[in-house]
């Protein structure tokens, strides 16, 4: 069973501010040790299985770097 939701973080837009990490109510996100080309530690899904696709991280992201997806196989069939 896949998780309910997932986020896609645009690595190059992320500035590693950590607002999404602090916002996520389920502890999905964390700052990764990986650097992007601008030298920021980018945010990533540390616990992807906990993501509900609630979009709170995306709404708080100051760089419009997060897109959120929901698992909807039925809808896709439609």
């Amino acid at each position: 069973m896949p998780p309910k939701g997932m986020v896609v973080i645009d690595k190059d837009r992320c500035k590693g501010c950590g607002v999404c990490v602090a916002t996520c109510p389920f502890g999905v996100l964390a700052l990764s040790p990986e650097f992007n080309r601008y030298g920021y530690n980018v945010a990533a899904m540390a616990a992807p299985e906990k993501c509900t696709g609630c979009t709170m991280c995306a709404q708080m992201c100051p760089d419009a770097a997060i897109e959120v997806y929901l698992y909807r196989p039925a809808k896709e069939a439609v």
């Binding site: 896949p2 939701g5 997932m6 896609v8 973080i9 645009d10 690595k11 964390a30 990764s32 040790p33 990986e34 980018v42 990533a44 899904m45 540390a46 992807p48 696709g53 979009t55 995306a58 709404q59 419009a64 997060i66 897109e67 959120v68 997806y69 929901l70 698992y71 909807r72 196989p73 809808k75 896709e76």
Partner: peptide
């Protein structure tokens, strides 16, 4: 921790995307 995921697997639909 995994590297940043960029591919969206089948069955996922966007609910929040970057404004056009």
């Amino acid at each position: 921790m995994s590297v940043v995921e960029t591919k969206v697997p089948a069955g996922f639909v966007p609910v929040y995307t970057r404004p056009k």
